[in-house]
């Protein structure tokens, strides 16, 4: 706390260290696998969303989460659990009501932000490694200030998770009556992980209890906050797990729908 008045002022220089970073470990590894992982997933998802086929297994009522709810008039009627509202142009995804919000939920997620700011935007690529940009204003202005709307996308994500859960439940009701196959388990597992990811969201943690000043006056919310905090610590893992389960679920449904493999049935 040196005062301004008496000690020599003026801009003092930082230590003249030539190397941009002196880190000797493999700091570039984490951003690299993030880029590879996220790019691969986005590529797969884009291809699948615009394929407009192999999303529904009539025989076992399997609907892939990428097409839920199916709302264009191109949809197979049985797969449209919530009605059809949009024209069937190829540019419109069949789940046009939900996919954008899911995308935005993940785009504004506190974990994914860290992941893509570091790996794609290089701001910074790793700790104590220089930022790749000349100037920086963070999330103080448009467009990045929109990141603050994460909470609203969380609300949508809850609704979408409900829809996905409904799909998973409907899948138990095949045209032959009640039945369980490997596909059901995959759908169910995916939905559970989706819920875990959605609930572990930082915004959710805040809404449930984090915003309170006095935990002692809200014992129930405090307990809920405690559970969510437990999940929240694993938000990163859940973010990657759900990317995996989503792709896996979709791929399984596609494979069955295309007739590449047949579903392993346990009951009916």
């Amino acid at each position: 706390m040196t005062s301004s008045a008496t000690r020599p002022q003026g801009v003092r220089a930082r230590a003249a260290i030539a190397a941009k970073t002196l880190r000797t470990d493999r700091w570039w590894f984490a951003p690299l696998i993030t880029v590879i992982g996220l790019s691969a997933w986005v590529a797969y998802a884009t291809v699948r969303v615009f394929m407009h086929k192999w999303y529904w297994v009539e025989e076992f009522s399997y609907l892939t989460p990428f097409y839920s709810p199916c709302v264009t008039d191109r949809c197979i009627p049985e797969a449209s659990h919530f009605g059809q509202y949009l024209p069937g142009w190829w540019i419109i995804p069949d789940a046009a009501f939900t996919l954008p919000f899911l995308l935005l939920f993940r785009l504004t997620c506190y974990y994914y932000r860290k992941a893509y700011y570091r790996s794609f935007w290089l701001s910074p690529p790793a700790c104590a490694v220089p930022d790749g940009h000349a100037s920086y204003s963070g999330e103080t202005r448009f467009p990045l200030i929109v990141q603050n709307s994460h909470r609203y996308f969380f609300y949508f994500a809850v609704i979408i998770s409900l829809i996905n859960s409904w799909d998973a439940i409907l899948a138990f009701n095949t045209p032959q009556g009640f039945g369980i196959g490997l596909g059901n388990l995959i759908l169910l597992g995916n939905v559970i992980m989706l819920w875990a990811y959605t609930i572990s969201c930082h915004s959710c943690r805040h809404i449930i209890g984090g915003r309170l000043k006095h935990f002692s006056k809200h014992p129930v919310r405090y307990r809920a906050w405690g559970y969510i905090s437990w999940l929240n610590v694993r938000h990163m893992q859940l973010a990657w797990i759900t990317l995996g389960t989503l792709a896996l679920t979709d791929f399984y449904v596609m494979s069955v729908a295309a007739g590449w493999i047949s579903d392993l049935r346990f009951i009916n």
Binding site: Y110, R113, K114, Y117, S123, P124, C127, A128, G138, R141
Partner: peptide
């Protein structure tokens, strides 16, 4: 708002 939560 400057913070972009890169967690370093």
């Amino acid at each position: 708002g400057f913070c972009n939560i890169t967690k370093c």
